[in-house]
Write a protein that binds this DNA or RNA. Sequence first.
DNA 1: CTGTTAGCGCGTTCAG
DNA 2: CTGAACGCGCTAACAG
Lengths: 347, 347
Amino acid sequence: MATIRDVAKRAGVSPITVSRVINNFDYVSEENRRRVHEAIAELGYVPNTVARSLRSKRTNTLALVLTDVSNPFFTTVARGVEDTASKAGYTVILCNTDESEAEQQKYLDVLIQKQVDGILLVPATSSPESVRFIQKHATPLVILDRRVVGAEADTVLGDSEGGAHELVKLLIELGHQRIACLSGPRGVSTAEDRVAGYRRALTEAGIRVEAKRISYGPFSRRTGYEMTQRAMAVQPRPTALFAGHNFMAIGAMQALREMEMRVPEDVAVVCFDDLPLDFLTVPFFTMAAQPAYEMGKKATELLLARLVDEGPHEPQEIVLPTEIVIRRSSGDPLVNHNVKASVAVEP
Amino acid sequence: MATIRDVAKRAGVSPITVSRVINNFDYVSEENRRRVHEAIAELGYVPNTVARSLRSKRTNTLALVLTDVSNPFFTTVARGVEDTASKAGYTVILCNTDESEAEQQKYLDVLIQKQVDGILLVPATSSPESVRFIQKHATPLVILDRRVVGAEADTVLGDSEGGAHELVKLLIELGHQRIACLSGPRGVSTAEDRVAGYRRALTEAGIRVEAKRISYGPFSRRTGYEMTQRAMAVQPRPTALFAGHNFMAIGAMQALREMEMRVPEDVAVVCFDDLPLDFLTVPFFTMAAQPAYEMGKKATELLLARLVDEGPHEPQEIVLPTEIVIRRSSGDPLVNHNVKASVAVEP
DNA sequence: CTGTTAGCGCGTTCAG
DNA sequence: CTGAACGCGCTAACAG
């Protein structure tokens, strides 16, 4: 492939002049500029970013390390990141850890080697080692969606505690007293914050928090399914379920269906994180929606800001509010349903 | 950050010896090897891939350019790509074009500049310019999911024609004669192949193909919604709908619901591409499932193979079979439903 | 406005 | 088994 020197030779100028034309730097005479452009076109020259990066110490690449690309919540976050980064001239490398700390570390190694300019991290666990690793290599970092204990880093996340609190409060207002909580794994802040919101809502209403109604486990449909089977076996039986995750709520629905329980008639269900309209024949779940796109966007803007002014700074924590959307699954009789149809669970 | 020279100095050897240790090349005395490893650990040295790439002309990076990251079909393809590439020591850059040829070209420019070792492309349209551009820069390429006319390139795709044919044949066997076809845009092979399968099934059954029953438009829920409104207005009214895309089928459901038509009682619906169980409270659509993960995997394997043996070769076209999954939406009375529940569309 | 010199961090070449 | 020299393609720094 043609190099900058080939172009220079063809245009009858020096390589640095070509460089200046490409980068719109300094002043280059119209005449020379034209000839360089001509030569570039004739040779089909494309600048080599690798060489450029070696010199400039900047790769114009960001990395987004997240835990589950299959989840539309993260897909939407990723879009927010992509759009924002792309607009600013950055490419994004997407890495999927499947909630594994080991996978995460493997990716971080590669990313540091690749000299990415910045990292957006949805940490698999709240342990701070990965964060320290990144900081040791002086790579700018923004933590996304989850809190990391003892990490001094910029963080952008949704209001899990608040959202959970509102959701459970809604259930209580609807008359529920025995509410099971299907939570994500211990050691993940989104999971624990949602349990905290659940507890607060109960406590505020003077309802005793019972440990036997709270289960912890991986964020997945299967876990939601199994937890629901166990939760429904606890006597006296719960009349409502709070799932701290969208896929878990789907698993819960399956379990309830197999038990021949109707939702919301026999059991009310609420959950965290919406599923996009594209996937739903009928929107059904009452849930706390996080501004996923906005989260990705905000986090990227913060990261890009850190790239320009290097200096030390107070780590920022940006908490984005959640929005409660009331639909059929909570069984609120007072709500105007925005759809005519319902999902019936046959007996 | 520490460079190979710093490590060398600390270990009391030359830089090249360090290089040999890192890359497991040649023979290095145990003594030196130990000291180098020590120095690496002490300094937290990480090799600089950018410099390495400049020298070696290889970036160990592949690019996956696709049209819609929001669609679980492509998310699954992406996982197949990622897993396979990662196992072989490659990083993947994911680029989302939103079906726009212009976006696609912008990304391809960047990718060529970044010297990626290979490109996996889901082409936004079937015009061959992008393919030629990539080939001109001698970057190995595998086309994914869609055919490009007049392009001499390896291609991996699903059997759209066959899947559509089976699906429509099924509808005919169930007694349907007036079947509307909601197709993706003209100029996209998956859309056109599915229409072709639809036509063949009708023709084989001796049913006249009516142009007024076939609509073309972007792959989206909204399009499916609008097309369904129009399709249902055609007299005599169709008794079944074939949607060439999962999101379109969702849009169709919404339109039918608003018209107070029940599925499958009043209208049968079948479509292409499944939605993962994680998103579905109840699996509902009869559809042709493509092996998305397998497609990503196969395509990546093919690409990686091309990277090692450079020589020219016959372009390969790998067509993966689709699997018909029969569920409620087609209304087949003979099928054993694998779920007890149903989605009812209220009058 | 333009060119020369030097070097980013690494790996290949060839000589110890 | 080890090292010195050179260059990948580009641009910062400094002339002119």
